[in-house]
Structures are given as structure tokens and as C-alpha cells.
């Protein structure tokens, strides 16, 4: 049974629960395991890149909205130094977001070569 990030079963996201004041934002957020499941579905339908995206997404479910927005900003052209991207990657890796960390590291290398660092 699909659960929200909060652990509430999706089927319990109901109007009655809303009326009781019982629904919090995390009750309508996707659970990382659901994203892993969807990644497997995408793989089975000939799209490993979509699967990889959904697995990066699973890692990002743990991050607060503000941080997700700030990482996006850091990856935009000429926003970050090589070291800042390295530190960002380390911090992501430490928190189990290894796929996103790898993406950031790869960006740092390419940005260095193509003049896209700050």
C-alpha cells in the first residue's frame, strides 16, 4: 500500500481527514520508496534515464524545500566555485544523497572545463 512521506497511507488522504484538521503537508508528499518503485516501473518501460531521475528524486525527498531551491540555484551557471560545488557534493553524500552528489561533482568538472564556474 502506498504511503505518504509521513507514513500515512495514501488511501487515508481523505476529505474527512482534512475536515478533522488531520492532514499536514507531509501527508501529501511522496515517499522515497514510492519513487524507487516508480523508478523500477520506468526501467521496465525502456527508460533508464527516467528511472535515474526518480532515484535522484527519492534522495531529495529528505531535503527541505528551501535547500532544494538553493541547490538548484547553486548549479546554475557561474553561481558556484569548484570548491563550493565540491562541498555541496560532500554534504549531499554525507546525507545519503549519493546520486545527487555524483551529479554535482560531474557538474563541477564540466563547469571547470567550460568556464561555467563563478
Amino acid at each position: 500500500m502506498t504511503q505518504a512521506r509521513s507514513g500515512r497511507p495514501a488511501v487515508d488522504v481523505t476529505l474527512e481527514a482534512l475536515r478533522r484538521g488531520d492532514l499536514a503537508p507531509d501527508d501529501v508528499r511522496i515517499h522515497p520508496e514510492t519513487l524507487e518503485h516508480q523508478a523500477q516501473v520506468a526501467e521496465a518501460h525502456a527508460n533508464p534515464q527516467l528511472a535515474a531521475n526518480l532515484r535522484r528524486a527519492a534522495e531529495l525527498t529528505a531535503l527541505p524545500d528551501d535547500e532544494v531551491l538553493s541547490i538548484y540555484e547553486a548549479l546554475r551557471p557561474r553561481r558556484s566555485s569548484y570548491d563550493e560545488l565540491g562541498a555541496l557534493a560532500d554534504s549531499l553524500a554525507e546525507r545519503g544523497a549519493s546520486r545527487n552528489a555524483a551529479l554535482v561533482r560531474e557538474a563541477a568538472e564540466l563547469y571547470a572545463r567550460r568556464g561555467l564556474l563563478r
Binding site: R29, I30, L35, R56, L60, L63, E106, A107, L116
Partner: peptide, 26 residues
């Protein structure tokens, strides 16, 4: 092209991240 991509204030990596950011919120 890379030039126009950067003019648009993004890179393939920032866009890849953004794509995952959306998926992370379902």
C-alpha cells in the same frame, strides 16, 4: 547549444536537478 543554454541561465546539470526536484515532490 551551450551558449544559448547559459544565456537562459541554466546548464544541463541544473535542469537535471530541477527535473529531480519536481519528482521529489511527486
Amino acid at each position: 547549444t551551450e551558449q544559448i543554454f547559459v544565456d537562459g541561465d541554466d546548464t544541463p546539470w541544473s535542469k537535471a536537478f530541477l527535473t529531480s526536484a519536481y519528482a521529489s515532490r511527486g
